[in-house]
Design a binder for these strands. Structure first.
Lengths: 254, 254
DNA sequence: GACTCCGTTCGACAATGCCGACCGCGGCGC
DNA sequence: GCGCCGCGGTCGGCATTGTCGAACGGAGTC
């Protein structure tokens, strides 16, 4: 692997830092976080500012992410094959299930939401496209983990963050859950990420059979689950059908 | 201005190239477009791939934008003050006018859509957040041009692309239109960008009085315009009210 | 089967970006 | 009001770093 360009890696690190750290950061803070000389960080920031990837608050001198990134992000959506193939099926699934639909793909130890259909006939909901969800505490994430041993191993090495009292926080519990997912062909989470919310998801496979994403529904526990908090089998069937349809589309394209 | 880091500028150029050129590009094409050595382009691409900003199609070897950009883009939305202040007012405007609402800010000779509220109670619409619109052919863009002489001069130097037969394509026509916008305090476009579609927009000002964005509605000509294709005055009033409310919010925050 | 095209590798050169110390300024506290 | 401190920004020297161009290998094609 010849020459990973370090200035670009550093620039990317700065962008990620700005994305994580909610809000504006100063040159000093950035330099300290990344263990760079202040001057170095400044030079990179100026360049990023020049290309529109970061903006500077004239008043405070602090930096934040720039508008050009928004356009690049949305351009990614245009190109993303998983998303474009899944668009129609996601709408259909939302209509049939009456719940919000999300499509996720793995990104750096998280689930990246690449598509989101609001729950039909309902109130204000915030768009989650571009958001990162935890792998071990969502139905989407568990699907991705179940079919990617490598990813699963990496996640289990680190600590499993707890979001509610039902989050799976031990490696053995997660391993068992993933085995169950492989067995059933779909995954569920019941209040493991957000109290009162549940999700059901199934894998999307590309032509080679490789799992490249997941599609699932999420909503209130009462609607998604029957007695004893068991996910509704009919809904799970709809999710699986949608996932199969998308997979077929993806495979057929090649 | 010391040291604009060239490798980062080149990386940004590659990303923009991938965003423009719809679809996947090969190393050779990229290197040729940017007049770089193939090896150099390859090194940068490898680095961008490492940080998740580009992805490589295993089958063809070609490159496309990566998923990490989507997350950065959505993180930008979280930070963007213009958008967060405008969220509620945009919803209110959509409800009152019954039309789709968009909020735009200037970006590199275009209008970047930073927020989009669908037309209430309606069919499938595609989210346009992150999209770039022409400055001279949309109501949003004309507002931005009217209050930014610098930007207007730059746009008028270049050729004005024609989208419909009603697009303003000559500099004098545009200049007159912008004067009218300043006079009225709001702008409109009637089938200048998309046949059958019209738009009405008004400026959003920050604390200093500087125009930092625009908010507007868009929809079918029949609904937005009255007799003789003149924009409806009541709707224009709603748009202006919303713009003033957002401006007040922005100013008050400082 | 040979040709061509394309992504990838490699090594040498020097241009490049990095570093650390130095300015100017604004805010705070003494 | 004056001095101090912390901040973002600047500058120049050094060597690390990225760049270049040519050569490799595999896939698809005629």
């Amino acid at each position: 692997m010849p020459g990973p360009v370090q200035s670009i890696e550093r620039a990317a690190a700065i962008l990620r830092l700005l994305a994580r750290g909610s809000g504006r950061l100063g040159v000093g803070e950035i330099a300290a976080s990344l263990e760079l000389a202040k001057g170095t960080a400044h030079g990179i920031l100026r360049t990023l500012q020049g290309v529109g990837f970061v903006e500077q608050d004239r008043a405070t001198g602090k930096y934040q992410l720039g508008a050009a990134l928004l356009h690049l992000g949305s351009s990614y959506l245009d190109v993303n094959e998983l998303r474009s193939r899944a668009l129609n099926w996601a709408d259909a699934l939302a209509a049939r299930s009456g719940e919000a639909v999300r499509i996720g793909t793995p990104l750096e130890g998280s689930v990246l939401v690449v598509h989101h259909v609001f729950r039909p006939d309902d109130t204000l909901q915030t768009l989650e496209v571009g958001a990162l969800l935890p792998l071990h505490a969502t139905a989407l994430g568990k699907v991705l983990l179940a079919y990617d041993a490598d990813l699963a191993a990496r996640v289990q090495r680190g600590p499993l963050e707890s979001f509610t009292r039902r989050t799976l926080v031990t490696a053995p519990a997660l391993t068992r859950a993933l085995a169950a997912v492989r067995d059933a062909g779909w995954a569920a989470d019941v209040e493991e990420c957000v109290p009162g919310e549940a999700g059901i998801a199934a894998p999307i496979r590309s032509s080679g059979g490789l799992v490249v994403g997941a599609i699932g529904i999420s909503g209130a526990v009462e609607r998604l689950c029957g007695a004893r908090s068991r996910p509704d089998a009919t809904l799970a069937g709809h999710v699986r059908d949608a996932a199969r349809a998308v997979s077929r589309d993806l495979g057929a394209a090649r």
